[in-house]
Every structure is written in C-alpha cells, then in structure tokens.
Amino acid sequence: MIGQKQIPSRAGGIEVAVEALSTRMVSEGHQVTLYNQRRSRKERKLNKEKGHQRNYRGIRICEVPVINIKGVSAATRSFFATVCAVCGKYDCIHFHAEGPSAMAFLPHRFGIRTIVTIHGLDWQRSKWGKFASWYLKHGEKTAVACADEIIVLSRAMQQYFWETYHRDTSLIPNGIEKPEKKEARVITRQWGLQKDNYILYLGRIVPEKGLENLIRAFLHVKTDKKLVISGAPSDTEAFYKKLQKLAEDDDRIVFTGFVKGVALEELYSNSYLYCLPSEVEGMPISLLEAMSYGNCCVCSDIAECVEVMGEYGYLFEKGNVKDLRNVLQKLCRTPKLIEECRERVSDYVCQKYNWDEITEKTLALYKKG
C-alpha cells in the first residue's frame, strides 16, 4: 500500500483506513507491505530502531525518502515507494488518494494488478496551489486510465467518476469499530472539560473543514458550553493562527492541538455534541468515530456527510453561518433532542460500516484479476 504518511498514526483518515485494512489482511494470512515516509533520526532513536525496515503487528513497513517541501513531499514519497514496490514482486499494489495515484501507470505498465482508493477529490481543497492542484487532478486521471479497480467511499464520488469519465468504480466505504467509552479525567486536568459541557470538532485544521464558519456561528450562541477544536494544521499554520485570532476574545473556545490515545477517547466519550462543518469531504472517519461513541452530530449538508449520518443527526446548509448558529442554539437549549439521537446512533453506524466486511470486499477486488 502506498499513500499513507506513517503507520501507526492518526494523522488523517487515510492512515486510519490503511492500518485497519492491513492489520486485518495480515490476520487472515496475507503478506502486506506499507511504504511509509522516512522518519527522522530523532524519531527512530526514540523507538530504538535502525534502518528503514521494520515490522508492525505483522505488517512489513518500508520507509522511503521525501523532499520536505509543501506540495512536493507527497509526490516524492509516492515516486520512491512505487519504484520500490514495482521491484518487490507483489501480487497487487494499492494506492491511496489522488496524489500517489499519479504513479499508478508504472505497476500497470509492468502488468501488476493496480488498485486505487480515492479518499476524496483532493484537488478541490483550498490549501493547494496551482501546481499541486494540477498534480492531484493528474493523479485522478491516471487512476482512471491505469487502475484495474477504483474504490470510492461514497455514492456522490461514484456518480462523479461515472459522469466525468464514464468509469465504473466500486463503492467500499470506510469502517468503524464500537469503542469503549471513557470517563473525563485527562481532559479535565488539561483543559477543564467535563461530560456534556463542550461541543467538539476533531480533525485536521484546514480551510475546507469550515472551522471559520463554526467559530463565527458559536460566537453568537448563548450557552455556557465550550467549543473544543482538536487537531493540528496540515501545511496550514497561517490558517490555524487566523482561527486563534478570531476566537481570542471568547474564553469558551478551546484549542487543544493534536490529540491521541486516552485524551482522544475521552473527548469523543464526553462531548455534548460533535460538529463537522466541512465544505469538502471524501468519507469523514472523524464523523464515523463520533457516531460510534454515541454522539449526536451536526454536519453540513454535503452529500458525503448526509450519506454517513442518515437520519441520525442534524444538518445545516453548507457555508451558512446563521443556519449553523440556529442549529447549535436549538440543541444547546433542548437536551432532550441530544438524548433521543444518542440512543440509536452507535449501533446504527457500527453495524453499517464494519471493517471486517470492508476488508473482505477489498480483498475480493485484489483477487478479481
């Protein structure tokens, strides 16, 4: 598999999906190699590891070099990974995301079965410049031309590929496991957060997630609850500072930075509601996770969120700050609506989006040729 930055990691949805798939494939007796971005000497020293090959839960990890320049690092990582993979005598090479898929022509030319998962239309994301956007769109077109199978995560994306390229795709969404809820301890010590006293956003801090609209809406919500924004910028440090500036006069708004482990579990377990105001998504794993913890969720009305959430949450018009404020205000004033949503949402999402079933469908595509 090629396209993830690091495994293990929660840097993004791709990393979560790749780890979930590959660990299950290994447990079934398959040999899986992941091509990760090479870590720094400091990172390897912390883990007391040498070289650029290691094993993680039965998965072979190979690390490849990158040129650490915005818009270029991912391209160099996928180039070196693909060259190595073509020489690796694999039955199948699986690319994740549009950028890495620009290299799909190489295994295709050598007759190696090539699978591409499109996690989202990445060229639409506002953080990219003209060259990066062109390269991502080029990766999309290369996948259409060279991949034996293309996996998409939503019906909207499936429709896009048919209408744009007349290319058939396989709809295999991301999955989720039912988690164990945690009491608020770490998050209380670090940020003063307690059960049901905060609204949560958790994900990457990038413009297309609609976070500026969320903050502007929350500033006008009359409530004692806090707004917690958890996550790290992704080549978007200036945008992160802009959000902090926008929120600086309201002490209800808390920025936690990147979270993982127990702190992440506690944030999901104890939030009053989860809000995902995105304008662009592939299939939001953070939304699946929030629902799996039994959270009432508020999302923008883009097709990808509507498809995941179904009738188990609340929608607002994409980009409409006033509409978002009204929904948040209504739910803050009416806890009964939150409880009614919580009663059903976890069982629904965990049954519908099952990683074991998703892994079997993916393996079937590997073997189809």
Rank of each mutant, 00 (worst) to 15 (best):
M1S: 13
G3V: 03
Q6A: 14
I7D: 00
S9K: 04
G12N: 10
I14A: 06
T23Q: 11
T23C: 12
M25Y: 00
E28L: 09
V32E: 03
L34K: 00
R38N: 06
R39Q: 13
R39V: 03
S40G: 04
S40T: 15
S40A: 11
E43Y: 06
K48D: 11
E49A: 09
G51C: 03
N55R: 08
I61F: 06
T76K: 05
T82F: 05
A85G: 05
H94Q: 02
P100R: 05
H108R: 14
H108Y: 08
H108G: 07
R109H: 09
F110Y: 15
H119C: 13
W123M: 08
Q124R: 15
Q124E: 15
W128T: 14
S133R: 15
Y135I: 01
H138E: 11
G139F: 06
E140C: 12
C146K: 11
F161Y: 14
S170R: 14
P173K: 10
G175Q: 13
K181W: 09
V186G: 05
V186Y: 11
I187H: 00
Q190K: 15
W191Q: 04
D196C: 01
I199F: 03
L202K: 02
K209T: 00
L211N: 08
L214G: 05
R216F: 00
L219C: 06
K225W: 06
L227M: 09
V228H: 01
I229N: 02
A232R: 15
P233M: 11
S234N: 15
E237N: 12
K241G: 07
Q244K: 15
L246F: 01
A247G: 04
D251N: 14
R252H: 13
A263W: 07
E266T: 08
S271Y: 08
Y272H: 10
G282C: 08
P284H: 06
E289A: 09
A290V: 02
N295A: 14
N295G: 12
C296L: 13
V298A: 10
S300E: 06
D301C: 13
G310Q: 12
G310L: 14
G313P: 07
G313F: 06
F316I: 08
E317F: 04
E317N: 12
G319T: 05
N320H: 12
N320R: 09
V321M: 07
L331Q: 11
E340I: 11
E343N: 13
V345G: 07
S346A: 14
D347N: 13
Q351E: 14
Q351G: 11
K361S: 08
L363D: 03
